[in-house]
Simulated assay, not measured.
Amino acid sequence: MSGSLHMLKLSVGTDSVEDLAAWQASGRAATHDGLPRHRTRMWPRRAAELLDGGSIYWVIKGVILARQPILRLDEVTGEDGIPRCQIVLKPGLIRTAAVPRRPFQGWRYLPADEAPPDLSESRQREDALPPKLSAALAEIGVL
C-alpha cells in the first residue's frame, strides 16, 4: 500500500462498518463539498506523510475493520474559537483484515508496515461478521 504513514482512530458510537458508513452518508460528517470528514483537536505533526497516500484505519468495537484514504487536512475554527484539524476523507469505506486493538484516546499514527491488508474485492461485498466475532477470530489467527 502506498504512503508511509496512516492514522488509527476509534469509531466511537458505531457497532459495525455499516454503522460508520450510514453515519457518514447521513450528511452529518460532510464538508461543504460533500466529502466525509473527521474533526480532531490536534493537528498531525506528520501531516505531509499522512497526505502521501495515508488512510484513517477505523477501530470498531476493539477491532480494526476498515480504512478510508485521507484527501486533505483543513483548518477549521470551533465554536469556542479554537482551531481544529478537519481530516477530509475519500467517500466509501474499504474493509480490511480484522486486527484487535486496545482502546486509546484520540488517534495514533500507524506505520504502513503495521497496517492490516485490505480484503479482496470479492470479500469487500460479503456481509461483515460481528466485531466481537471478528476480534476472536483475529486473535487466534483465523482472519
Rank of each mutant, 00 (worst) to 15 (best):
A136M: 11
T96K: 06
P69R: 11
R123F: 15
E121F: 13
P116D: 04
R102M: 12
S134W: 00
G141F: 13
D80T: 04
Q68A: 11
I70N: 09
A112S: 14
D118S: 10
K132G: 13
R108I: 05
K132H: 13
G62K: 08
G92W: 03
L143N: 03
I64T: 04
V76F: 08
R95I: 01
E139T: 15
A97F: 07
P91G: 02
A112R: 10
V88H: 06
I70V: 13
R67Y: 03
D113G: 10
D80P: 02
I82D: 00
Q105R: 14
L89C: 07
Q68D: 10
Q105M: 13
P117N: 11
A128P: 10
P130I: 07
A115I: 07
I70Y: 02
R72Q: 06
G106S: 02
S122L: 15
I87C: 07
A115K: 02
C85V: 01
P100V: 06
D80Y: 03
I64K: 05
P117R: 13
R123D: 15
R125F: 08
R101N: 09
F104I: 00
Q124Y: 02
P83F: 05
A98Y: 08
K61T: 05
L129P: 05
I82Y: 07
I94K: 11
P116R: 03
P83T: 11
Q124N: 04
